[in-house]
Design a protein around this nucleic acid. Structure first.
Length: 344
DNA sequence: AAAATCGCCAACCGCAATAAC
DNA sequence: TGTTATTGCGGTTGGCGATTT
């Protein structure tokens, strides 16, 4: 029996793996090494591919916005690296995990913030309890998402099967997306907190290369989220969502309409949430408007017009920010601000 | 200049979930 | 329906370069 190699990959090994996958796809990872002429176990090959060799991976320093995303999501989700990475375009869970463990966690600790509870170490407040509450809810939501992904995969297979066994149907008339269930309140937040030109420029880029969670349903890309009112009072607006995936944006104790509009304005769908009903079933997240979005006077938040200089953030921006006192206070506000429940 | 320490990150390990048989 | 194989995920380790002593 041949001893399998461990340790760092060589350039030759990388080339072999790349060449094989480019030509054949990875197929079964277990059988891949023999076919590709590698003395590695399949698991090692898979890891090398998903964390390093895949072409859809962005390497290099994380931007300030990415840092903020990690911190905020970690406050919500805990060490669920794949879920966090799913919200960071082209970043792997391993990279996010390493970044957290080697930098962000230490920085928070140095600031006297418990990196697990996000509580000031000698000044506990109710934010921690709220975060825990949010985490429980988020766990339920992620489970629902995973279920939906599984179901959609099943549907895809069925669809594929039909395509194979049946003559192709006539092309359907062009349809604008139906009102998608807003599965992901974080996606809405992300639209405000993460430089998103890459999101709208390249649908699907939000998916983590290593995550199985799929947030890039075609029906939601290129949508304009219309908020009924955007004003100074918007700081008190909330995004609400229940475990079934319904989602709304508005004020507590009011009847809320959320419009989802296609980019060409040709189709608008609305979803109403009566916050008077089952209010306790909803968990509220403040919607913050602190980033540079284009608002119009009707209160429309045109997510597609969000135009951050993404590269600008990643070329030294983080370093410059790190030393600024308001950088971390802003981060802490990010983590803490969204959890005020109107029901409390 | 050498040793010790630190920081970073690729890679490994083990467990759990899922798929295949 | 039970077993085995595969895959995904999170925790941890080890190597290596940079920095400090």
């Amino acid at each position: 029996m041949v001893e399998l190699k461990k340790g760092p990959w060589t350039r030759e090994e990388d080339q072999k793996l790349l060449a094989y996958i480019e030509e054949h796809g990875h197929g079964s990872w277990r059988s891949l090494p023999a076919k590709a002429g590698l003395l590695r176990c399949g698991k090692s090959c898979r890891l090398r591919w998903t964390n390093y060799l895949r072409p859809d991976i962005k390497r290099g320093k994380l931007s300030t916005q990415e840092e903020k995303t990690i911190i905020r999501l970690h406050a919500l989700l805990g060490n669920r690296w794949s879920a966090i990475a799913a919200h960071l375009p082209k970043r792997t869970d391993n990279e996010v995990k390493n970044y957290w463990n080697t930098r962000l966690k230490k920085r928070l600790t140095r600031m006297g913030i418990d990196p697990v509870t996000y509580k000031p170490k000698n000044n506990p407040d109710r934010h921690a309890a709220n975060l825990s509450h949010m985490a429980q809810w988020e766990t339920a939501r992620l489970e629902a998402e995973a279920r939906l992904v599984r179901e959609s995969k099943l549907l895809s297979k069925l669809h594929l099967l039909r395509k194979v066994t049946a003559p192709p149907p006539p092309p359907p008339p062009p349809q604008h997306p139906a009102a998608p269930p807003c599965l992901d309140v974080l996606k809405v937040w992300r639209a405000t907190a993460v430089p998103e030109n890459c999101f709208f420029g390249s649908p699907g880029s939000l998916e983590s290369p290593t995550s199985t969670l799929n947030f890039s349903t075609p029906s939601t890309s290129g949508l304009t989220l219309t908020v009924p009112t955007v004003s100074s009072a918007a700081q008190n607006d909330v995004i609400s969502m229940n475990n079934s995936g319904a989602c709304g944006l508005g004020k507590a104790n009011s009847y809320t309409e959320v419009k989802l509009r296609t980019m060409d304005n040709s189709s608008t769908t609305s979803q109403y949430l009566d916050s008077g009903n089952n209010l306790d079933d909803y968990h509220y997240v403040d919607f913050d408007y602190e980033y540079d979005h284009d608002y119009d006077m009707t209160g429309s938040v045109d997510l597609a017009s969000v135009n951050h200089n993404y590269e600008g953030y990643s070329t030294g921006g983080a370093v410059e920010f790190e030393d600024a006192a308001d950088y971390w206070s802003e981060l802490l506000n990010l983590v803490r601000s969204p959890i005020e429940s109107p029901g409390l």
